[in-house]
Simulated assay, not measured.
Amino acid sequence: MTAAQFKRHRAPLFVYPALPEIKLCYAVTLSAMFYAWYRVYQASEIYPWNIGDFGVHENPPLIGNLTGQRMKDQTNWEWTHWSPFTLSYIPVYLIHAVLFNIVGGFLKESLFTPLYIIFSITACSIYFTPFLVAVSIAQGLVIFLVTHFIRRTIVVWLATLPILYVVMHYSSILSNDPFLIYTFVSYTLLSYVSYSIDVIRGFGRPGIAFHVKYVVIFGFPSMFAKIDNLQPLPGPICLIRVTLYSKVWREFDRGLYKFFKSYIFIPICQPTFSVQRKIVGVLVSFGFVLMWHGFYHHNKVWIGLNIIALFIEMSSKVIYGLKGVDAFRKRWMSGKYSHEN
């Protein structure tokens, strides 16, 4: 199967009409945004902080002279770990940019490739520990051997999922700092999976663009990716203005969406793309997301609500496309106003 055959252009279920009520929609959306921010501010003002809570008194940026010290919420575990780590990792980005853009232009590929590999392994060993680098290489070796001797996608997944489960649920065995597991071992595992499946499909070596999670967290390294003449995915969409829930997955964590769309959802839905196959594809895709984040209660609730919201949207689209509903809308809603205008 070629890349052109694999890429499927799906006709839309229906075309969204141009609504004359668009100004009203903007007004409602902006009002909801400001109201939500105001309610968050109110909640933060009356929140009863207790000894032991993850909070510190600090001056807010820019307006600190006006407000004085305020309680800063530090419960965002990922952000509190990512910020200092990224600052310390800036030298690696800079050296990589020089190595990739300048040194690579002077050295032959036979010399540049081993130099680049040595630099990458050395940098990762310094920042993620040599043991985790060895773990990453070992899991990649297992998947590559499976791909080489048994060229079947299902076997690649069977070799990968147990490794992913152990890595995400027993991270304390591998490292005292789970942040290093989530940012290095698990992400390199996905790159091995995408590479192996693409090799089986005959796509060459495209790798995986799995780098967009938050605007800042992945926007910062994407800047260096552009310096290296790469094309990172756009940043995540602002969720507060999302009107279709499917866009939450398509345009927020774009890398994860591309991964399970290309390697899970489409292979399950092919060749018929029937409703039954799509439902199974959605369930399996979100099952992978659940395994990726961990089989914990809060993640199960989160994934369950995501599935419900997505199915509500899919059902609404079907209802919206019915002739009777379409006729009602044209007569009493946008169609009526556009006809009068």
Score class of each variant (00 low, 15 high):
Arg331Glu: 12
Met33Trp: 13
Phe131Asn: 00
His57Val: 15
Ile208Asp: 02
His339Trp: 14
Trp37Val: 14
Ser196Gly: 05
Val275Met: 04
Glu251Gly: 00
Val280Pro: 01
Phe131Ala: 02
Ser222Pro: 08
Leu94Asn: 00
Val166Trp: 14
Thr75Asn: 07
Met168Val: 13
Lys213Val: 15
Ser191Lys: 07
Leu161Gly: 02
Gly64Glu: 02
Val40Arg: 03
His81Asp: 05
Pro84Trp: 03
Thr183Met: 12
Gly104Ile: 05
Lys108Gly: 09
Phe128His: 02
Leu310Tyr: 13
Gln231Ser: 13
Gln139Thr: 12
Val146Trp: 13
Val103Trp: 08
Phe224Ala: 05
Met333Asn: 05
Gly64Pro: 08
Cys238Phe: 15
Trp302Lys: 15
Trp79Val: 08
Val216Lys: 00
Phe179Val: 05
Thr29Val: 13
Ala11Leu: 09
Cys238Leu: 12
Ser31Glu: 00
Leu290Glu: 12
Lys108Gln: 10
Met314Pro: 01
Tyr187Glu: 06
Arg205Thr: 14
Lys108Asp: 13
Gly140Glu: 11
Ile154His: 09
Arg241Trp: 11
Cys124Pro: 03
Ile227Gly: 01
Tyr47Asp: 01
Phe144Ala: 04
His293Glu: 02
Pro130Ser: 05
Ile303Ser: 07
His297Ser: 10
Leu233Val: 08
Ile307Met: 06
Val103Cys: 03
Gly287Arg: 08
Asn306Glu: 06
Glu21Ile: 10
Ala4Glu: 09
Gly219Cys: 11
His297Arg: 12
Tyr127Met: 01
Ser31Gly: 11
Leu283Trp: 09
Met333Pro: 04
Ile266Met: 12
Trp249Leu: 08
Ile312Asn: 10
Gly104Glu: 03
Leu190Tyr: 14
Ile266Tyr: 14
Leu239Glu: 10
Val212Phe: 07
Trp82Asn: 01
Gly304Leu: 11
Cys124Arg: 01
Leu305Cys: 11
Gly235Arg: 10
Leu161Ile: 15
Ile217Trp: 14
Gly140Lys: 12
Pro162Ala: 10
Tyr165Met: 13
Trp82Phe: 14
Met33Tyr: 13
Pro48Gly: 07
Ser246His: 11
Val282Tyr: 07
Ile121Ser: 03
Ser31Asn: 05
Thr188Ser: 04
Phe184Ala: 00
His96Gln: 09
Leu244Phe: 12
Trp49Phe: 01
Asp253Val: 12
Gln69Gly: 06
Val275Ile: 12
Ala18Ile: 13
Thr153Met: 15
Val185Met: 00
Phe311Pro: 00
Ala4Cys: 06
Ile63Met: 07
Lys261Thr: 11
Ser285Ala: 06
Ser194Lys: 11
Pro48Phe: 04
Gly324Phe: 15
Ala36Val: 15
Phe210Ile: 10
Val146Asp: 04
Ile308Lys: 04
Leu158Ser: 10
Lys278Glu: 13
Trp77Met: 03
Ile51Tyr: 03
Phe286Thr: 01
Lys213Thr: 13
Leu62Met: 08
Lys317Ser: 02
Arg10Leu: 15
